[in-house]
């Protein structure tokens, strides 16, 4: 009976591995669903494509951590399995009442603590500091992202690089979704779009706002995620790599209501020419802004 349960244990582990493998293979066989725009990048059961200059730091930490975790788990699991086999109950075998002096366990715990400290002070805190405070000074693009149930609005400051004031009282879902004020000179050349366009290789500062509930601005390929919290205006920044032009996904990562699952937008990483053409297209027929 005891032997039998051992075989079952091994079968379980083996079964899990096989099932996991087949499902991964099957995953790649599923055709991408039509989202209207062809999404660039490679997606699968691991980290997606990275188009951000600093994204590798996030990936590196995740990878280092997983190597460490798997190493610890395997080492610990081998000892576990060894004990289960060696010290199983059987005729003539009796437990040893003397507790062992397990010095290695103390060393292991100290090693884990040191490793965590290294990860924390070596990998996490400096990167977080860079993400949080070292905002780019190389003439970044500035965009305001205003989240609402269930859409993303991208507010560009126009040629003067200044955002106009917003007044929630005059919001009109069709004509003026953000409540832009006409009497603010800084807002004269602003424009709003449902698409996010940035220029490849140029840093971007994004101010994140929300009109109603908490959303979360998530761009998987940029390794960027930031909650949009009503009443707060939170700046973040990123910089795309050179030669990454294409269309990528923006998602909402925080439950925001019924259609949370469909709160998507497309981020277009443009060449400077493509970007200029897009701006021209968006600002040229000003019908929807002229009326008011």
């Amino acid at each position: 009976m005891r032997r039998c349960s051992w075989r079952i244990f091994l079968a379980v582990v083996f079964g899990c591995v096989v099932l996991g493998q087949t499902s991964v293979l099957r995953a790649q066989a599923v055709a991408p669903k039509d989202t209207g725009v062809k999404i660039d990048g490679e997606y699968g059961p691991f980290l997606p494509t990275d188009i951000s200059v600093d994204g590798y730091q996030v990936d590196r930490l995740i990878n280092v951590l997983h190597v460490f975790m798997i190493g610890l788990f395997v080492g610990w699991g081998l000892f576990f399995a060894f004990c289960l086999v060696k010290y199983r109950q059987r005729p003539g075998h009796r437990a040893n009442s003397v507790l062992i002096k397990a010095k290695p366990s103390k060393y292991l715990e100290i090693a884990v603590a040191i490793f965590e400290a290294v990860l924390l002070f070596g990998f996490s805190i400096p990167v977080w500091a860079r993400v949080k405070s070292e905002f780019p000074t190389d003439d970044p693009m500035r965009v305001r992202v205003v989240a609402e149930q269930f859409a993303w609005n991208f507010h560009y400051p126009g040629a003067d690089k200044k955002f106009g004031k917003l007044n929630p009282k005059i919001i009109d879902l069709v004509k003026n979704p953000l409540g832009r004020m006409d009497d603010d000179p800084a807002g004269k050349d602003d424009f709003v779009s449902g698409e996010f366009h940035v220029i490849e290789g140029r840093s971007v500062v994004v101010e994140i706002l929300s009109k109603d509930v908490i959303h979360s601005f998530f761009v998987p390929v940029l390794r960027v995620k930031q909650d949009a919290i009503p009443g707060m205006r939170i700046p973040i920044w990123f910089k795309t790599k050179e030669k990454t032009a294409g269309a990528y996904e923006i998602g909402c990562a925080q439950l925001c209501g019924n259609n949370h699952f469909s709160m998507r937008a497309v981020m277009h990483v443009d060449t400077p020419e493509q970007y200029a053409a897009w701006v021209k297209k968006v600002t040229a027929p000003p019908e929807e802004f002229k009326e008011d």
Partner: peptide, 11 residues
Amino acid sequence: GYAHGNAVQGL
């Protein structure tokens, strides 16, 4: 609806 979601729908 997400490309990265659809890629792992098998999972």
